[in-house]
Amino acid sequence: MTIRLNVNGKQNTIDCQAGEMLTEVLRRAGYLEVKKGCDTGNCGACTVLVDGKPVLSCSYLAARAEGREITTIQGLAEEARAFARFLTAEGADQCGFCAPGFALTVLSMKKELHNPDEAEIRHYLAGNLCRCSGYEGQIRAIKKYLEAEHA
């Protein structure tokens, strides 16, 4: 089947199988910033925004995404770069594989929650696994990023 996907404001016409998930289809269309991690709905590396909400693209039916607005990390590059500076400053970015999904979830949290405390941050980010950092640096980075954004 052929579907039309709006990715980062650009229309794409893509062939896909009926049961195919969004990760595969996006990567085949060249959106390689969407990372394929566990591929079982657990790690958060494949996170994209669909109509502004973070979802796991490995568990989201590609055909269902037709007619919706899909945003990858490239679609929020400017905001992501601003956040990435805090990650780097806190030594929280090592292999970087989880970073696109992680940053998208943080940017989504910033819109959804007003001034979240650490428990709320940890809860919101529970679906983004990082095998390198131990999370402490990331939490510091998020807090400082949010403080700077609200200043």
Binding site: V55, S59, A126, N128
Partner: peptide, 12 residues
């Protein structure tokens, strides 16, 4: 429901 994996899956 808040123990179910992460927000990204709970949005699905």
């Amino acid at each position: 429901v808040s123990h179910v994996v992460g927000i990204q899956l709970r949005n699905i």
